[in-house]
């Protein structure tokens, strides 16, 4: 018995879908994937502070997990500047440099 593997073609081809429906469905899906920052405990914030200070002084690389535009992001690099007054840090990896606000971070992994 020979069966055709056509992925979802049978249904894509026959689908009756309004463009407006499609757009609104995509917006809904995007919204469902939105992430909000978990509330961090005080000792956790303290630990982050310590890990960042250490990474800055020892010039050791870290992995930062943070939330930007409601999506989870990750970046690995060296802490170049830690601005506690405006609460942000600059992290660099080769040519790439990112400015990350401290209240966007939810995990720091020292390497």
């Amino acid at each position: 018995m020979s069966l055709l593997h056509r992925k979802n073609r049978l249904w894509e081809g026959s689908r009756m879908f309004l463009p407006e429906h499609r757009e609104q469905l995509q917006t809904l899906r995007k919204k469902q994937q939105e992430k909000t920052l978990p509330e961090l405990a005080e000792d956790q914030i303290e630990e982050f502070n310590w890990l960042l200070q250490e990474a800055l002084h020892l010039e050791s690389p870290i992995i930062l997990d943070y939330i930007k535009e409601k999506q989870c992001q990750s970046f690995c690099g060296f802490v170049e500047e830690l601005n506690t007054y405006e609460s942000y840090l600059l992290i660099v990896n080769g040519q790439e440099k990112r400015k990350i606000f401290l209240d966007e971070i939810y995990r720091i992994i020292p390497l």
């Binding site: 056509r6 992925k7 979802n8 049978l10 249904w11 469905l25 995509q26 899906r29």
Partner: peptide
Amino acid sequence: FDLSPVTNQSFS
């Protein structure tokens, strides 16, 4: 017979 998956990715 139909091997199509139920997918929510089909609109991308």
